Amino acid sequence: DLMDPSELAGLNDIIEGQPLVIAENGGEVIRPHPKFRVFATGNSVGAGDGSGLYQGVLRQNLAFMDRFRVVHVGYPEPTIEKEIIKAQAPRLPDLIVEKMIAVAGEVRRLFVGAKEGGAELTVTMSTRTLVRWAGLSLTFKGAPKVFEYALTQALTARAEPEQREAIHRIAADVFGDYWAGSQP
């Protein structure tokens, strides 16, 4: 959904399995393999961004979007996220990883919002951010309040002050004594 819709419309025939003809190469014809597939990702399902959180995404052509099957993908289960983090930051103790995942879960819950009310946060913690937080916790090992500092660098430095404070409060509650200065 960051692509210009008029440029993407040029892919319609290819997405439908028609051969690609490259005029600039003497009319070369490239026939698709029977298992050829196109995968695309986006944060707006092609509908543009009404929330203001994903500025720059474009509303896509309905005919183009009709050629796709849409699959909504949530965050990985905690056990999967733990494996992802441990693969990237293997020296981080399991207990700390589990606490980080718990913080991420609460931040995500507040970002999505309750069914009756709206979202309480305008930033969330992606798996990418969670991995960054874990890695920075190891990078800054030995620093005072390492988890707080790493969280600031990974996520909350870009949050509004009230939201930064709320996220750090969540982390402090989840981490308990570890938040005050224990090392990974």
Rank of each mutant, 00 (worst) to 15 (best):
V70K: 15
G56E: 03
P78M: 04
D66A: 11
G113S: 10
L20S: 09
T129E: 15
T129G: 09
I85C: 08
F147Y: 13
A119I: 00
G117N: 11
I101C: 09
G117V: 00
E16I: 00
P78K: 04
R37W: 05
V146N: 06
G52M: 08
R59M: 09
I80E: 14
E116W: 04
F36D: 08
F111E: 03
F111S: 08
F64C: 00
N25E: 13
P34S: 12
A47M: 12
V73R: 05
A119E: 05
T139M: 14
P144D: 09
K99T: 02
V38P: 04
A89Q: 01
A102W: 00
I101R: 03
Q18W: 00
K145C: 03
P144A: 09
P76V: 06
T127Y: 04
G17P: 01
A134E: 04
M65V: 03
E148G: 14
V57M: 09
A150K: 01
V131Q: 09
G50V: 11
Q88A: 15
P19R: 02
G48T: 07
L138A: 10
V146K: 04
G74Q: 08
G74I: 05
L92A: 11
K115V: 07
P32F: 11
G118W: 02
G117K: 12
I30S: 13
E16F: 01
T41N: 05
V29S: 12
V57F: 02
G26N: 14
V70F: 15
I30W: 08
I80W: 04
A9D: 14
L121Q: 03
T41H: 03
I101G: 09
K82V: 00
E81P: 07
F36N: 05
L53V: 04
I80Y: 06
L110G: 11
R91H: 10
V123W: 10
P78W: 03
L53I: 08
V103Y: 02
Q55T: 11
A23E: 15
V71T: 02
H33W: 02
P32A: 10
M125D: 01
R59D: 05
D49L: 01
D66E: 10
K141R: 14
V21A: 04
G48L: 05
E81L: 07
E28F: 05
P76Y: 11
A114P: 01
R69I: 06
A9S: 13
V29D: 06
G46A: 06
M125F: 04
V73C: 07
Q55V: 10
V45N: 06
E106Q: 14
G74V: 09
E16Y: 01
D94E: 15
W133K: 09
K145H: 12
R91G: 08
G52C: 07
V45K: 14
R69W: 12
A63K: 06
L62V: 14
G50N: 11
V57E: 14
F64L: 15
L110I: 02
H33I: 00
L136T: 04
Y54N: 06
R108M: 07
A143K: 06
F68G: 00
T127E: 01
K145P: 00
G27L: 11
I84Q: 04
G105Q: 03
N25P: 00
R91T: 13
G135S: 11
F68K: 03
I22K: 08
R37A: 10
T127I: 02
W133A: 07
A104P: 02
Q55C: 01
V21R: 14
A47D: 09
E77W: 01
P93T: 10
L121I: 03
F39G: 00
Y149P: 00
E16K: 11
I101K: 07
V71A: 09
G118K: 09
